[in-house]
Amino acid sequence: MGPEENEFAALPFRETVVTIQNEIAKAMVGQADVVRHVLVGILGNGNVLLEGVPGLGKTMLIRSFGRALALDFSRIQFTPDLMPADITGTEILEEGEDGRRMFRFQKGPVFANLVLADEINRATPKTQSALLEAMQEHTVTVGNATYPLPAPYFVLATQNPIEQEGTYPLPEAQLDRFMFKVNVPFPSAEEMRQILERTTGGAEPEITPVASAEHLLAMQAVARRIPVPTAVSDFVGRLVIATHPGHGLSRMADDFVRYGASPRGGQAIIVGAKVLALMDGRFNVSFDDVAAIAPAALRHRILLNFEGQAERVRPDDIIADLLRAVPRETLAHAR
């Protein structure tokens, strides 16, 4: 991709991103970083997990994205009695006009462009795992038949902190299928005032669709073509490896981590950094892009050991320490 083609592709990309953010802002007060990270995940063709206490607008945020992006939207409310077939669909027995009976597959709510898995950690691990194939392969297998899911396809899930009653921690294999985990903070006093004013009046925000499914697919293709300098990709690789204990670069990682990030963590950083570069109107990835997106890409992929849990160490603190400790340039690149 040459400079002229780069410029042509990046400018409408950035304009579309700003337009989407403006539409989301009609419904959301504050949470600019959360909106930005979710949008990076969508444009990177990844799934996003949002965590926060109830009432912070996580569901409204995802609904707003569904409206602004003009996508086929589906919402699944996860509960302890939800079954896998309630998500993927099931085969039903029908009788034709000729009296013959046959099975027909009735699609579940997972068949949509944008699937909201609301309070995903309220359901049992068996039901949570029903989303694994959909999130990774974008297909659903029922019996001997495999059904493709529509493109683009995203799972945006919300969960309450696992300290709350009635929740089931997500299995590590499923957490790894989420490109990002985004923490939704509690609003400030000023933001709380605006929320109360907006939500206790009579008017409701009208969100205008500003991008189609075809538009999103084109933007995803452009983002994938953004170049990454070798020094940056090497840094990402060393950063992911350093999340595992025993490498001596971070005392926090050595002392408090049981198991570090998988290669999917590095993939999420690279793709997210490409999207960030385009969102800022740039045509190549920088170290700053990596540092900005690394916490969202790694925090759910770092498993703490007993000491880390007892000391209430946060994965974000370990990631920040690693970003300071891992050298950006190796001797090979410095020459």
Score class of each variant (00 low, 15 high):
A70W: 00
A70P: 07
D72C: 02
R75M: 01
Q77I: 01
P80Y: 05
P80H: 07
P80F: 07
D81W: 00
L82M: 09
L82G: 06
M83I: 07
M83G: 10
P84S: 05
P84F: 08
A85W: 15
D86L: 08
D86C: 06
I87S: 04
I87F: 04
I87M: 02
G89W: 01
G89D: 00
G89T: 03
G89A: 02
T90L: 14
E91F: 15
I92W: 12
L93Q: 14
E94C: 11
G96S: 11
E97G: 10
R100M: 15
R100W: 15
R101G: 11
M102I: 02
F103T: 13
Q106W: 04
Q106F: 07
Q106I: 12
K107W: 01
G108D: 03
P109V: 00
P109Y: 00
V110I: 14
F111D: 06
F111R: 04
A112P: 00
N113T: 03
L114I: 05
V115T: 05
L116Q: 03
D118N: 08
E119H: 06
E119L: 03
N121Y: 03
R122K: 10
R122I: 00
R122T: 02
T124F: 07
T124Q: 12
T124M: 13
Q128F: 02
S129V: 02
A130S: 12
L132N: 08
L132M: 15
A134N: 09
M135N: 09
M135L: 10
M135T: 08
Q136M: 08
E137M: 11
E137P: 14
T139W: 13
T146V: 13
T146W: 13
P148L: 09
L149D: 14
L149F: 09
L149I: 13
A151P: 06
P152R: 04
V155E: 01
A157P: 00
Q159E: 14
N160G: 09
N160W: 13
N160V: 10
P161L: 04
E163P: 09
Q164I: 13
Q164N: 14
E165M: 14
E165C: 08
G166Q: 02
T167D: 04
T167P: 05
P169T: 11
L170F: 09
A173T: 13
Q174N: 07
Q174I: 00
L175W: 09
L175E: 13
L175D: 11
L175N: 12
D176V: 06
D176E: 09
D176T: 07
F178K: 00
M179F: 12
N183M: 14
